[in-house]
């Protein structure tokens, strides 16, 4: 997908120029030892996080792990019980920050409002009164210009999702929080929205992207942060995360489809997808030995050591503890 040129702001300034005036650090968000408790439940526990300015930062984690609470603290909807939350240079204050844009998962739009009125309302609420030209540019960018007079409840899910995205960015935010922006979208709309997210980064906007779609997170994010049971369990680039997990998975395909996988002592787990066998080895070091055994067994078309995907890492971290299951 071609990425169109950077959209100029209505007054000619870029987000980066706006940010220069207010933020002197390189991080858009800094969380230090943040804890938030609801009744007796610790939702977020001693969390540290630094989101570099201008990056696309992926937030992943199973449901109920503390993701939404963290996002709400960044949005200043919640205040932490302890620790500090620094967003765009500001540490204190209960007032919502106009430099933040937020796209909640699936909903977040007044069903009976017209698209044009709704987008203007959200932009004005953020203090951006002269917003029409900017909104029109985004509508054009997402091929939604003809929907201006449509009521929200007449839009399809994909159309509504695009409008929701524009609502989040309509006030030229420096930091955008997108909660599952691709949920329920068809591949065409997904690509269109992905291009829009990349365009935001190109314009210098920091994007926090919360998702369960690990493939999209891998494709889109510079850095991934995973929270589990209120604690940070992953934080880094895809490569750094992958390097921390052993490459002990092997993909194998025999030339003869009838060839069965032999018994291999080094393999702890295996399953078959069509002609493809996925093997999990006891250790990454045992891959050459396994290759030798397979070559001896039959003609091989493919033998590939697979780096652990984000999905694999996620499952490995978040899968239920056998002790918990048996309890």
């Amino acid at each position: 997908m071609e990425i169109r040129s950077v959209l100029p702001q209505s007054d000619g300034k870029t987000n980066r120029q706006y940010r220069m005036a207010t933020d002197t650090t390189d991080n858009a968000i800094e969380l230090n030892a943040v804890t938030k408790t609801f009744a007796n439940h610790v939702a977020v526990d001693q969390l540290d996080l630094a989101v570099p300015t201008g990056s696309i930062y992926g937030f992943i984690g199973p449901n109920g792990s503390g993701k939404t609470t963290t996002l709400r603290m960044i949005l200043r909807i919640f205040q932490p019980d302890s620790g500090s939350v620094r967003v765009l240079g500001q540490t204190k204050g209960r007032t919502a920050d106009d430099r933040l844009g937020y796209l909640p998962e699936e909903r977040g739009l007044y069903k009976r409002m017209r698209v044009g009125d709704l987008l203007k309302y959200y932009a004005k609420l953020k203090g951006f009164n002269d917003c029409q030209a900017h909104i029109d540019e985004w509508l054009q960018q997402l091929d939604a210009s003809t929907w201006v007079n449509k009521r929200i409840d007449s839009l399809s899910k994909g159309m509504a999702q695009k409008i929701q995205f524009i609502a989040a960015v309509a006030a030229r935010p420096e930091l955008v929080i997108l909660d599952e922006p691709f949920s329920g979208l068809d591949p065409v709309n997904m690509e269109s929205l992905r291009a829009a997210v990349l365009l935001l980064r190109e314009r210098g906007t920091t994007v926090i992207f919360s998702t369960h779609d690990m493939d999209m997170a891998e494709k889109l994010c510079d850095t991934i942060f995973m929270i589990f049971k209120g604690k940070k369990v992953l934080d880094g680039t895809i490569d750094s995360i992958q390097s921390r997990y052993p490459a002990n998975r092997v993909r194998v395909r025999f030339a003869d489809p009838e060839t069965q996988l032999p018994f291999l002592p080094s393999v702890t787990e295996s399953f078959q997808h069509g002609r493809l066998h996925m093997l999990t080895l006891r250790s990454a070091d045992e891959a050459p030995a396994v290759l030798q055994q397979l070559v001896a067994h039959g003609e091989l078309h493919l033998f590939e050591v697979v780096k652990p995907s984000l999905h694999d890492v996620f499952i490995q971290i978040a899968k239920p503890d056998p002790v918990e299951l048996s309890a």
Partner: peptide
């Protein structure tokens, strides 16, 4: 009720206290 159930409240609370 609409603002709450449609999660509009979260957007609004991100813009106004």
């Amino acid at each position: 009720l609409e603002e709450k159930s449609q999660r509009i409240a979260e957007v609004l609370l991100g813009s106004a206290n």
